[in-house]
Deep mutational scan, measured.
Amino acid sequence: MAAGGDHGSPDSYRSPLASRYASPEMCFVFSDRYKFRTWRQLWLWLAEAEQTLGLPITDEQIQEMKSNLENIDFKMAAEEEKRLRHDVMAHVHTFGHCCPKAAGIIHLGATSCYVGDNTDLIILRNALDLLLPKLARVISRLADFAKERASLPTLGFTHFQPAQLTTVGKRCCLWIQDLCMDLQNLKRVRDDLRFRGVKGTTGTQASFLQLFEGDDHKVEQLDKMVTEKAGFKRAFIITGQTYTRKVDIEVLSVLASLGASVHKICTDIRLLANLKEMEEPFEKQQIGSSAMPYKRNPMRSERCCSLARHLMTLVMDPLQTASVQWFERTLDDSANRRICLAEAFLTADTILNTLQNISEGLVVYPKVIERRIRQELPFMATENIIMAMVKAGGSRQDCHEKIRVLSQQAASVVKQEGGDNDLIERIQVDAYFSPIHSQLDHLLDPSSFTGRASQQVQRFLEEEVYPLLKPYESVMKVKAELCL
């Protein structure tokens, strides 16, 4: 049975990233139509530049190519590739079939990587351009969430054990800070992308030097003109047959890092959902379990974690691919890159769409948070109580021993009897502590235990987050809708 299948058929496997999760716009960027249309555009740009620099290419040939950029006979191309065992030459023939007058000058002087690699770089750039505003929107939604809850005390956790208090907004800023680093890295790697350009079979530009009869300047002009037509500021000066596969490492490393950030955020949300302090959106008709109707599973956060793990592992592909590119190139890269580049971007696209949807509907339960604080705060307040007693004339050592005994009794009630923490009640009825009984409410005010959390939130948002989001103001209103 021949390899390949009808990918629109229910009898043929289709990647869930495309069929179930990723956005239509990201799927289109990695589609065959987008790819092969870009090949034709690159052939047109090459012909236009070659004509401008004096090669015998007519206006009629150029116009014929322009008129057929979208006229792609995919069936013919597939048949040609089956016959020739070469995808680029299959599309040269297919393009030439609908451009008979231009057929002889299509791909003039070029090698397969002229269309293959340059198209990949265009796709990487455009895919990054799709991700950047999506990530900015996630940051914006979380920034709104953090600002609104900047002063809401909550129990902090280290080692997932109760620690000092923080605020809900401050905790959210930990998430935002990681995503801001990801946004900066995505922008950097996007701006650092260079075009492969017009380089020939081993990167020496020998074929173009021959076409222009040894004119170095025209060869350099050709490279520059096509690079500018493709919208790049610069091209690699040095290439082998391909652009260095280190570029793929750079791009997928940034995406993998984004995956790590999203995994951490969504894990926190899942843990908070278990504590009943916070939940992701839950639709009115949504079913959490087929057997347990009360369940409210954090399905979206779980999906993000599941896909983020996949995204983090994909960076190993370009690392290994770059390491086995012998001399000017081997074909070890080809099949692998067809999979890992598309999957990385479709996965990143999915987790950003999902995280935006989550961040637009996060639900906080202040009463649950308050109750958990009441359970733990008495123990945390013991040092403040000791200091207040010393100020009232008591002995630190005597007070410490009193607190120690009462704390152990209260802990026994919590752990052995399943009761509430009654340390404060014990202190309130103990005559030894009568000098500070009137101060206990103040000493137990949760806001006095959150330090500068709310001020940190305000400063972080104003100095770091809002300036970073400013270039994306025009796209901030787009909502994230999930079908599944």
Rank of each mutant, 00 (worst) to 15 (best):
A2W: 07
G5W: 12
A22S: 15
P24G: 11
Y34G: 09
T38Q: 08
L42V: 14
W43T: 00
E48W: 02
T58R: 14
D59Q: 10
I62P: 02
L69Q: 09
E70G: 13
E81A: 00
H86R: 00
K101Q: 08
A103W: 09
G104M: 15
H107V: 00
T111C: 01
C113R: 00
V115P: 07
G116L: 07
I122K: 02
L128W: 03
L128I: 12
L132F: 11
R141T: 15
L142D: 09
A143L: 06
A146E: 01
K147G: 11
S151R: 12
T158I: 00
F160K: 06
T166A: 06
T166W: 01
L179Y: 02
D182V: 02
K187V: 10
K187A: 14
R188S: 06
R190A: 10
D192E: 12
L193R: 03
R194C: 10
T202E: 03
A206P: 05
F208A: 04
Q210T: 15
D216Q: 10
H217Q: 08
K218M: 11
V219L: 14
K229G: 04
R234T: 13
G240I: 06
Y243I: 10
D248Q: 01
L252E: 04
L255C: 14
G259T: 04
V262S: 15
K264Q: 01
K264A: 08
R270E: 01
L271Q: 07
E279F: 06
S289P: 00
Y294K: 01
K295I: 01
P298K: 00
P298H: 01
E302M: 06
C305S: 12
A308M: 02
R309H: 14
L314N: 08
M316V: 11
L319K: 00
D332W: 03
C340A: 15
L341A: 14
A344K: 01
A348Y: 03
Q356M: 08
I358V: 11
Y365C: 12
E370R: 11
Q375V: 04
Q375F: 11
E376F: 07
L377D: 03
L377A: 03
F379D: 03
M380T: 02
T382N: 06
E383D: 04
N384M: 13
A392Q: 11
G393K: 07
H400S: 03
I403T: 08
I403Y: 06
S412N: 15
V414L: 07
Q416L: 14
E417N: 10
N421P: 13
D422C: 10
H437R: 10
Q439A: 15
D441T: 09
L443Y: 05
F449Q: 05
V457E: 04
Q458Y: 12
F460R: 03
V465N: 04
Y466L: 13
K470F: 13
C483Y: 07
